[in-house]
Design a protein around this nucleic acid. Structure first.
Lengths: 232, 232
DNA sequence: CGAAATTTTGACTAGGTTCAAGTTCTGTGG
DNA sequence: CCACAGAACTTGAACCTAGTCAAAATTTCG
């Protein structure tokens, strides 16, 4: 196993409040693993044996309903910890995480969590903040699904993706990984068809630029107005 | 201030892993406060100055949208900690908590959190588990809102309420606090009218018994079947 | 008893799904 | 290098769930 370079991860939120030596101790327990595009990092209802930190790539986390529908819980970007089922008191993963592009993650065996979390309470505190902010996100999504119509939900979803993983290009801000209309549908509780119709209409109005598994926000400001229910 | 009786709270999940002396230390920083029915414990966007543990009563936690719609985030039952905004890295409360019946809570000033959480990592770990389970709940709700029709969402919401705060009565399981059709609507992303229609239909079929701000599940099993999408 | 809050019910409407083709990409293998 | 098969996307038409609008009935409480 190649030594992990602390400088790559020292500035991440998870490691705040730890000295370089402590960071080395934590990193020393991890292995770096590569996940090719399409591979699962872990699967829903599987025994949770590890927790993770994404170094490169993007993951799509989704839940499968009994009747086979998928709902996208979130996308994970580099620097985020994920799969911390054990810290949350669970024995299985609540969702499946799959690489949408070739990805690399640090992997810790669950067995080291008790020692690390007792030795370094800052690690616990940082994890609590991360989980807390995801709770906020999830509750915001519940509010949106309860009160907003599809077009506004799509606007909010795209703005979140752009903020999280947007890349500036000449024509605007492009989502930095392959994302289909179906994916957007599974993030917003709409159907593929409705998402396609909405994006087509937006494209006619110059708000976005479509493409196969590609979405570019041409006019983020007007999309924001749409999301907030103003203008149209 | 009357001394707080440790025996009342020692068995709660938050205090697991602490010795009686440590529990006394934590409790010693808290005050017991009474909230009459209808009073707010804290308000959305208010500076977060305290965190709480509910001793008696029931709280309704809701978020208000810019256009004035309310969405119920959750109901809090005795024994639960809440309002832990600071531990989550927030400076304001993300929602409003109001007493639906006369209630009593332990109140800690935020200022004591850094010391307590550093001194007793178990407190951090327990809080992380609590927040984690709320994250699961919120994500489950997102999945339900994305994939289920109103009738099933209402069934799920009532079953959750019954599990959390159900009281056995002769005719079935009654929700143990006043809850209106409007409240159920705000929990499920439906309208008052739709909830009323669904509950009326269920009452005709003998599944529930209605009443002003009162709901009794007469046949929890058949409601469960409904929630799971089987029979009807 | 009267006023306010809660609940019920009817009629109509509409946003979004479903059903059904058809079109446009993209990567692969001959 | 081009043909082609599969995947992704688009679009039209019919339909339906749940929302909206409107009004009345019931309950509670001062």
């Amino acid at each position: 196993m190649p030594a992990l370079d602390r400088s790559l991860v020292a500035s991440l939120p998870v490691f705040q409040g730890l000295t370089p030596e402590q960071q080395d101790d934590v990193l020393g327990e991890a292995q770096s693993v590569r996940y090719p595009k399409g591979a699962d990092v872990f699967q829903q209802d599987q025994q949770a044996q590890h927790f993770f930190l994404l170094l490169h790539g993007h993951l799509r986390v989704y839940r499968l309903t009994p009747d086979g529908q998928q709902v996208v819980v979130r996308y994970i970007s580099p620097g985020e910890i994920f799969g911390v089922a054990m810290a949350l008191g669970r024995t299985t993963y609540p969702a499946t995480a799959a690489a949408v592009v070739d990805s690399v993650a640090l992997v810790w065996p669950n067995a080291v969590w008790p020692r690390l979390s007792e030795t370094y309470p800052a690690l616990l505190a940082n994890t609590l903040r991360t989980v807390g902010s995801r709770l906020q996100d999830a509750q915001t999504r519940v509010v949106e699904m309860s009160t907003e119509q599809v077009e506004r939900r799509i606007a909010h979803a795209l703005l979140r993706l752009a903020q999280q993983s947007g890349r500036k290009v000449e024509t605007g801000i492009q989502i930095d990984f392959p994302i289909s209309r179906q994916d957007v549908a599974e993030m917003t509780g709409a159907t593929l068809h409705t998402v396609s119709r909405v994006l087509s209409a937006w494209e006619d109005r110059g708000l976005v630029e479509g493409g196969r598994q590609k979405i570019t926000l041409r006019d983020p400001h007007r999309i924001f107005m749409l999301a907030e229910g103003n203008g149209g």
